[in-house]
Amino acid sequence: MSHDYPVMLKLAGRNCLVVGGGAVAERKVASLLEARADVTVVAEEWTPVIEGLVKEGRVRGEKRAFRETDVKGSFLVFAATNRPEVNENVCRLASSFGALVNRADRPEDSSFTDPAVLRRGKITFAVSTGGASPSLAKDIKRELEQLYGIEFEQAAEFLGEIRDLVQKSGLPSEKRHRLLREIWNEIGMKGIRSGSPEEWKLVVRRLLRIEEER
């Protein structure tokens, strides 16, 4: 059995196309906007939400039938209409132009699957069943929401700032790596769940003093 290869794509400023204007297409557009992609929607009809995004200038919209030339220049394409023959055509053409393509009604025909995503600041959880059961992926995401609360968003931001400070501290490389390991060992998952940013800062100050005195 082959497995999908998980990656996190940087889509900021990249041309992405959504063919379709229903609820599924609306979700795809929202996820692309979160990634700051340059989004175009092509559909004969679309939801009020998509209509609003087009009017606000947040996405480009073409209210018409799909054309073969629409996929040209796109990095990533979603085929999200309610017409299988259109989705099949979009997939075929997108692949011929070298674009990554996702077909909402037949994930097995896609070059990538769209996972259920949970974000906690800099942390991204992506749950995929390879298209086998989107409902299962969504339920797992809901459990993750309960397990990883807002404190993890705060911790990721804090630890990122500390890492930058340590890297710029002037300490030798070996000491920097040791200090970062010790900070994590002191805080850890338990400290994130039961502590606070002020307590984390105290840990860092204490360990930094110890490292400087070595």
Rank of each mutant, 00 (worst) to 15 (best):
G20T: 02
A23H: 13
I183E: 08
S31C: 08
L136Y: 08
S110G: 09
R27I: 03
R181C: 07
S173D: 11
V77C: 00
D164Y: 01
S2T: 12
T113N: 14
A137K: 06
G22Y: 04
G130T: 07
K141S: 08
L144N: 10
R205S: 10
A35C: 02
V19C: 04
L118H: 09
P172W: 10
F97M: 05
V49L: 14
A35H: 00
V117F: 08
N82P: 06
L11C: 05
A132E: 09
D164H: 12
D109L: 13
A37I: 09
M8C: 12
N15G: 03
A99S: 15
I192A: 14
D139Y: 12
L100I: 13
L171C: 13
D109Y: 02
K175W: 03
K190F: 10
E161M: 07
V24K: 02
R64V: 14
A25S: 13
S111Y: 04
R67W: 11
V166W: 07
V24L: 07
R214M: 12
Y5P: 12
F78V: 01
A99V: 11
F97E: 14
L33S: 04
V41D: 09
G121L: 05
E182D: 10
P197M: 01
I123F: 13
K28P: 06
L100G: 09
L33D: 06
S2G: 10
E34S: 06
L76W: 01
R103Q: 15
F158A: 14
P115Y: 00
S169Y: 03
A37K: 03
R103F: 05
F125M: 04
L33A: 01
S194W: 00
T81P: 13
E85M: 12
R64A: 11
V39E: 03
A126Q: 12
G22D: 08
L147V: 13
G57A: 06
R119E: 06
L9G: 04
C16A: 13
K28E: 11
S128F: 10
E44K: 11
T40Q: 05
L179C: 08
E108N: 03
A80M: 01
A155W: 02
F125W: 07
S110A: 12
A104I: 02
N15M: 07
V39L: 05
G131D: 02
R106Q: 15
